[in-house]
Amino acid sequence: MLQTILKYSLLVLAALSFIYPFIWMLSASLSSESSLGELTLLPVDFTWNNYVTVFTKIPLDRAFLNSALVAVLTTGLVLLSGAMVGYALARLDFVGKNIIFYLIIFTMTLPFQITLIPNYITMVKLGWVDTYLALIVPFALNSLSVLLFRQAFQSLPQALIDAARIDGAGELRIIFQVLIPNIFPTVLTITILTFMGLWNEALWPLIVIRDESTMTMPQLVTLFSVGGRAEGQLGVKIAAAVMLAIPIVVLYLFFQKHFIRSMASSGLKD
């Protein structure tokens, strides 16, 4: 009995310490400046002002569209390229297949610190600085998704492919019409991982995007928080942070289980 009480009080305490800061953030963003710093559950002096100010100071709506565009397009490309490469590695035989597999492993262990500066210079030389291309193309393929697709395709029976071949389907049709529907969980995992990673990425946009109309949300919110445009007003910064958090939290509330499983599978890659 005592153990049970202890167990639940520990869990509740932990849960509170993870949830309460978010609740505080939400109510602080809806409170007047002078009541910030209160330990509160509900907004004090309720006001929308902070949000109004955020939208007049920075083009957050535009940044939202940029983020959404970049995340959706890139996720699509990652699925496309991952499925193609993963399929070839899983089901086809060709010279150099093993080399490619090892290159992928190598890429995954390579710290990004090495490639950061040269990649920036590539962007500059291609004239992609301040364009969506700089945000999309470098992320259009990722090693983890290739490996996950490879694993998923390997688990499927050869008969599925053979039957499709007899019907005269080409390889692309086999991949995208016959096989993909059978590995939906993997597709979902990759979608979630890629989308979340892109939505939250702040470092790379900071490096390649200087034009405010092309900035993504995390970048804009970071700059807003570091720079002087908030004029030292905390509530406004917090409101900007809330706006950045809301889309992904909403998605999380809908696809909670999938989020957790996807993240766990990325953690288990070693």
Binding site: F18, I248, V249, Y252, I260
Partner: peptide, 25 residues
């Protein structure tokens, strides 16, 4: 599942959000 979901909440949120939040705390 509630507890798991609660513990997982900061994981999915951008580091930018978490940092701004903690800066105030």
């Amino acid at each position: 599942s509630f507890f798991r979901a609660a513990f997982f909440l900061p994981v999915i949120v951008s580091g930018v959000v978490v940092t701004i939040l903690w800066q105030q705390l």
